[in-house]
Amino acid sequence: MADKSKIPLPQPTPETQHFWDGAKAGELRLQQCNDCSAVYFPPRPFCPTCGHREVSVIRASGKGKLYSYIINHRPHPAFDGPYSIAVVELDEGPRMMTNIVNTPQAPESLTLDMPVVVTFESMSDDISLPYFEPAANQSASANGEGKS
């Protein structure tokens, strides 16, 4: 049985705290340069495109697409059987690592560029991790068909 306590939890720093506060509140947060408008991730208090120090925290749509992944077949105590380690490209541009959840962990159900949406799971009092699931799951849910 998967033991979620075996997941190494992030330790926020002053520059990333807003991201983890957002995750706790069910929001995916990115940053945007006040000068050149670049949206970026991971967090840092200056723009990696132009070096400007005035930046804003923005709430991302939570929507993106599956950019690339592998299915890890080596056993990990926090996972049951093979699992995806994926990178999603957010609609706002930045990419981030995640697991694609709530769908079979098989190439047939994990097609590149399929739409995905963020979903959060509480791991401790302080940390909720962002995961992504197929957008089709949530639209099915909205249609009253329930999650698989």
Binding site: P42, H76, I85, M97
Partner: peptide, 24 residues
């Protein structure tokens, strides 16, 4: 940054990371 934004997702060394870009 890797500890915060990659490690929680079950990464297990180079075989699980170096390989990720290839499907793209």
């Amino acid at each position: 940054l890797q500890g915060q934004f990659e490690a929680p997702y079950g990464i297990m060394g180079p075989p699980s990371l170096f390989t990720i870009p290839f499907l793209r």
